[in-house]
């Protein structure tokens, strides 16, 4: 496993597999390899890199939403009335 991915996993609390499933490892490595920890975390969690969201996928795959167990608004359709159900447990 490469150093950037390993560091990202350690900082975010998401496994390397979870990070890979976002499809963003390559893009984020190019942007943030060697950057300060807080910037790497912000990028993964919120999709924001130095005041810009570098593409729709960065927003859609934001880890803050995944941590909370919900889709980023405007990205997925969980189905009519799904909002009435007890939320799934998310943190692990």
């Amino acid at each position: 496993m490469d150093a950037f991915l390993e560091l990202s996993a350690e900082l975010t609390g998401f496994s390397a597999d979870e990070l890979r499933s976002t499809g963003l490892v390559e893009q984020y490595r190019a942007l943030a390899d060697g950057a300060p920890e807080n910037e790497i975390i912000q990028l993964w969690y919120t999709g924001v890199w130095r005041g810009v969201i570098p593409g729709e996928r960065a927003y859609v795959e934001g880890l803050a939403w995944k941590a909370a167990g919900v889709a980023a608004p405007g990205t997925r359709a969980p189905g009519f009335g799904s909002w009435e159900q007890r939320p799934a447990r998310s943190a692990r």
């Binding site: 350690e10 900082l11 975010t12």
Partner: peptide, 26 residues
């Protein structure tokens, strides 16, 4: 949740602790 993330990161949370704090807060 961006503001929550920033708050927890500034407080030094990392890894699982960060993930759980965001999950609980949001």
């Amino acid at each position: 949740p961006d503001s929550d993330t920033a708050e927890f990161v500034a407080a030094g949370l990392r890894g699982k602790a960060l993930r759980e704090a965001v999950a609980d807060r949001v």
